[in-house]
Design a protein around this nucleic acid. Sequence first.
DNA 1: TACTTATTGACAATGATTTTCAATAACAAA
DNA 2: TTTGTTATTGAAAATCATTGTCAATAAGTA
Lengths: 138, 138
Amino acid sequence: MSAELWLNQLHENGYRVTAARRAVVETVEKSTRALTPVEVYDLSRKKYRALGLVTVYRTLEKLEELHLIQRVHQPMGCQAFISMGQGHQHLLLCQNCGQAAFFEGDDLEALTKSISKKTGYQIQEHWLQLFGLCANCR
Amino acid sequence: MSAELWLNQLHENGYRVTAARRAVVETVEKSTRALTPVEVYDLSRKKYRALGLVTVYRTLEKLEELHLIQRVHQPMGCQAFISMGQGHQHLLLCQNCGQAAFFEGDDLEALTKSISKKTGYQIQEHWLQLFGLCANCR
DNA sequence: TACTTATTGACAATGATTTTCAATAACAAA
DNA sequence: TTTGTTATTGAAAATCATTGTCAATAAGTA
């Protein structure tokens, strides 16, 4: 469903909507865990056999540029992507199965203000990510 | 000074202290910004010309294993390393010059408890990193 | 001082990502 | 609809980062 919205976004930004992109978007949009380019390739090829790995890389690049997906950083590697949450959200990842959940409501106002005073840095952004075990895996 | 401590750590863990490792350790230990393997290589070769890049990779691997350094994740890439702070510390990075500062005192207790209840995840770890401009660059 | 064996640097191999290129297909305009 | 322009495609090659192999060397214990 929302895959159509992503395709609209591509179209509205001057990109063409192709069968290859459709397959990639449908795969990534509905995944609840971060996928590497090769995983996206394997899954998407079930929908569109002629898909090439290079096209996956190029499509992910565009989806990231449009803020529809984000790169997920993990101890084991940083080459996986997942849908961007809406608004200011952070990721919570299951260390066992990779299942991702989004959360918000982190208030770092007090912390950043104090750090800013202590260090002299002007703070502009923060990365926060939680790791744990999901309900199924715990 | 503290480079000697790192070398001791290596020794105490059964690793030999060589000229190559000495050069790498001295470079990484005194850097106030994250360095990539190639940067470590270039800087260390000023102290020990015969150093090979492969040895840099292998030494960084051991320093990470001993928790003397940590990998630094950034939007532009995740192949840089910096000294580990002491205790539970997080990084604050200058987006302009890369200068790193450590901070602590993040209290995410309340947040993680509430997220845990909402999502059913058992939270075990968190990553927090701040980005901004250091006193010089702002 | 001698000896065992971890460590070295060079080279090759791998893995991930990017570039190149000619063929194809989206889609705007007629 | 049809057409024409041009973005997009997949395959192959090129690049970049990292890891494995190996014989020569040197650290550190005995």
